[in-house]
Design a binder for these strands. Structure first.
Lengths: 242, 242
DNA sequence: GAGTGGTCTAGACCACCCG
DNA sequence: GGGTGGTCTAGACCACTCG
């Protein structure tokens, strides 16, 4: 472990974190081996113990390291294990997973909130909302139908903003409501007439049905989506921690 | 915000965190309002700024607070928003969600790893594994069929340990491999003959199909499960963060 | 008892945002 | 320019684990 070279503009704890990560990915530190104690790392890297510690804690959070009190900090096996709980847009996901994304707008309207939508968005029933129904295609094959809802009062001009090529909440971010987290629930269902037709599957084909509420930084719900995903082409991965 | 009373044995930052949380849940601090600056809180609560900060950061992680650089720390709306990414056992979940859990062991055997199992557990194909198939019931209604797999070499005596009433990985924890995280993938599928019969549904009924690999603290995969969940009774909730 | 991580302090300087 | 959070320091004491 060498002293850190002066990467100016990057926080020291981040440099510590990446230096340790580099030692692992380069194979100088192997799974199961013990990391040097915080104190020694601090001296070697020319940082305070608290700073080294912060870098280490980041890596523990990622599952790259683990520690046992009174014993030491160790390199975990299988640090391939990414977090799968990042909120990403359709185009981002496509870039990561390597497919060509396309979105077709099937419907856009201003209508009254159903009870389910109203509850999710913290509105009263029948309050005006913008509803956009889109078909999402991956490599030109239908993947999902989304029904997205936002409050019309909060975002009266959202329909003019190029929904064809952007995820709705990317637009919301630019309007001063940066989305920060989402809660989604999935179920298995069967395709019914219209959804089956749109997705190009038989009626009774399996559908991963997903309800997603997206919250802005300040904790307000800003978007609610009902998603019908083709069971044969769509799966969802999650990381759980104890 | 009062000075902390001497709750001995509890870390000061945790007391800070809970004191702030209490101010929010009791309504003394309302959504959208600004929290006192770190410096002032430190003085009021009789702790150092770094300690107060740590408590605040915990709450930000939970989505209870949010902050803007150079501006302040604010109380988020809707702090109902729990993290849904906690790895819990069937009996824990039942206690939280309020149903009566029951597990019936359908099959237990020592067999060779299929390719899928071997890949997940980092073994070679045909290496001996313990396989346990269980039926999980909620309020005496079938909910899911699980096929759980662990390495026979690592846990030769796992079959003697009361799988009927315990989740497999709870036993693993007691054997010195505390489970720490899991990665699971879900898809929608249709029930086929045997699974349909076991779950008490028609063939072609929707099934939430889940593959779950559970990792121990040190990052080794310790358990791999294939789960068939009844689509009409089972849903899965996840929190995503940006 | 020696070594480790867990907590905590009382400062400090900086970057950012606002009026 | 004044207030905020973001980073960083150089110590300190404690709790836990292990031989």
């Amino acid at each position: 472990m060498m002293p850190l070279n002066g990467n100016e503009g990057i926080a020291l704890y981040a440099q510590v974190r990446e230096a340790i990560r580099e030692q692992i990915t380069s194979g100088k530190l192997k799974p199961g081996e013990r990391l040097l104690p915080e104190e020694e790392l601090a001296i070697l890297m020319g940082a305070s113990r608290m700073t080294v510690r912060r870098g280490i804690l980041d890596l523990i959070d990622e599952g790259v390291l683990y520690r046992r009190r009174g014993v030491g900090t160790f390199i975990a096996h299988r640090h391939i294990d990414r977090h799968h709980n990042r909120l990403t847009g359709y185009f981002e996901s496509a870039a990561e997973e390597g497919f060509v994304p396309r979105i077709e707008v099937l419907l856009r309207e201003i209508t009254g909130a159903t009870l389910m939508v109203a509850r999710a968005l913290n509105l009263r029933e029948d309050e005006p909302i913008v509803r956009v129904r889109t078909l999402r295609l991956a490599d030109d094959q239908p993947l999902a139908v989304h029904d997205e809802h936002v409050s019309y009062r909060l975002y009266p001009d959202i329909l003019d903003a190029g929904i064809e090529t952007r995820q709705l909440w990317e637009l919301l971010s630019e309007r001063g409501d940066p989305v920060r987290r989402a809660v989604q629930r999935v179920e298995a269902r069967l395709a019914e007439d219209e959804i089956a037709r749109l997705l190009g599957v038989e009626e009774g084909a399996p559908i991963l049905y997903k309800l997603r509420t997206v919250y802005s930084e300040d904790g307000r719900p800003v978007e609610f989506a009902i998603c019908y995903n083709r069971g044969d082409r769509y799966s969802l991965t999650t990381t759980l921690t104890r």
